[in-house]
């Protein structure tokens, strides 16, 4: 097998193989390799002792340093909260009016609120909070459930028609589909509602509007009020302003009266901290002053 043959020129052994007179040297492994191999073994032994490493049946060695990534995360969250404490304490303790009047705090609210809104609210209400078909524009003064700071904060907390126990509940009945009104009456009521926000509209038949007013008085005032100004206690929208969630054209209003509406906003109490919800409220109030 192994042939002991020393190469005279280098002094190393050969492998004993020969190809057309050429022999292969069996050069020893360089010392540097042993050096780094020793360091690697020593490091791993140290690592086994210090870090979680060896399985022991139903448990494992925890390591002397007691490092657990879950504690690392908890610790880093704690540190982050402590870092933010400089201004979070102020947001938590001060009133909305005081915070809104403080440009320094509002600069922070804008900076922190934007990603918070983007991660949680923008999917429905849009990146700039201007909403979309079926999802309300939050930069207007028209809030279904009240636009005062506490109202907005509460709506974020409980949601609308959500799973929260204190949720806002509202439903616009499907007057047409559920046969509460005949087809013609739905259109008349819709025409009257359209005329409220379009007082100058010329193409409306006054008789239809008058008939619609009567139907409105019989069916709609319970929620929307005698003057159709809505009721934030019930989440009933003001029908006389220019803000519409599902569209303010005659066609869109007719669709809403025919098929009803039941919007849904999730509750954020279980997902966002009280502080985050207060920041979002301030962020929205700030958006609103920017876009009257």
């Amino acid at each position: 097998m192994a042939v002991e043959e020393r190469d005279n020129h280098t002094g190393y052994l050969t492998t004993g193989h020969e190809w057309n007179g050429i022999k292969e040297l069996n050069t020893p492994v360089p010392r540097a390799v042993y050096f780094f191999l020793t360091i690697a073994v020593a490091f791993s032994i140290g690592y086994w002792i210090l870090m979680p490493a060896w399985p022991l049946g139903v448990t494992y060695t925890r390591g002397l340093l007691g490092i657990d990534q879950r504690n690392v995360v908890a610790q880093s969250l704690k540190e982050a909260a402590a870092d933010r404490n400089v201004w979070t304490a102020k947001i938590q303790s001060e009133s909305y009016a005081a915070l809104l009047a403080d440009p320094k705090m509002m600069a922070i609210v804008r900076e922190v609120g934007r990603p918070l809104f983007g991660d949680n609210c923008a999917a429905c209400h849009g990146r700039d909070a201007t909403g979309g078909p079926g999802f309300p524009n939050l930069t207007t003064t028209s809030f279904l459930w009240g636009g005062k700071p506490d109202d907005i904060f509460n709506t974020i907390r409980v949601g609308i028609n959500s799973a929260h126990k204190d949720t806002h509940v509202s439903q616009m009945p499907a007057f047409g589909r559920d046969a509460m009104l005949p087809r013609g009456d739905v259109l008349k009521a819709a025409t009257y509602v359209y005329s409220l926000s379009n007082p100058g509209a010329k193409n409306l038949d006054p008789a239809t509007v008058a008939a619609g007013k009567k139907i409105f008085a019989d069916n709609c005032v319970a929620c929307h009020g005698d003057n159709a100004k809505g009721n934030p206690e019930l989440g009933a929208p003001d029908l006389t302003d220019r803000f519409w969630i599902y569209g303010g054209s005659l066609d869109a209003i007719d669709t809403s009266v025919w098929g009803g509406r039941q919007g849904h906003m999730p509750s954020w109490e279980g997902r966002l901290s009280e502080l985050d919800r207060k920041i979002l409220t301030l962020y929205l109030l700030d958006k609103r002053t920017q876009t009257p």
Partner: peptide, 22 residues
Amino acid sequence: GEKYSDQWQVAHLINPRDVVPV
């Protein structure tokens, strides 16, 4: 789960650009 409403999920699956333009 339950982060957004069913209506949003449906609208978003039908055409994501309808609710998230980018």
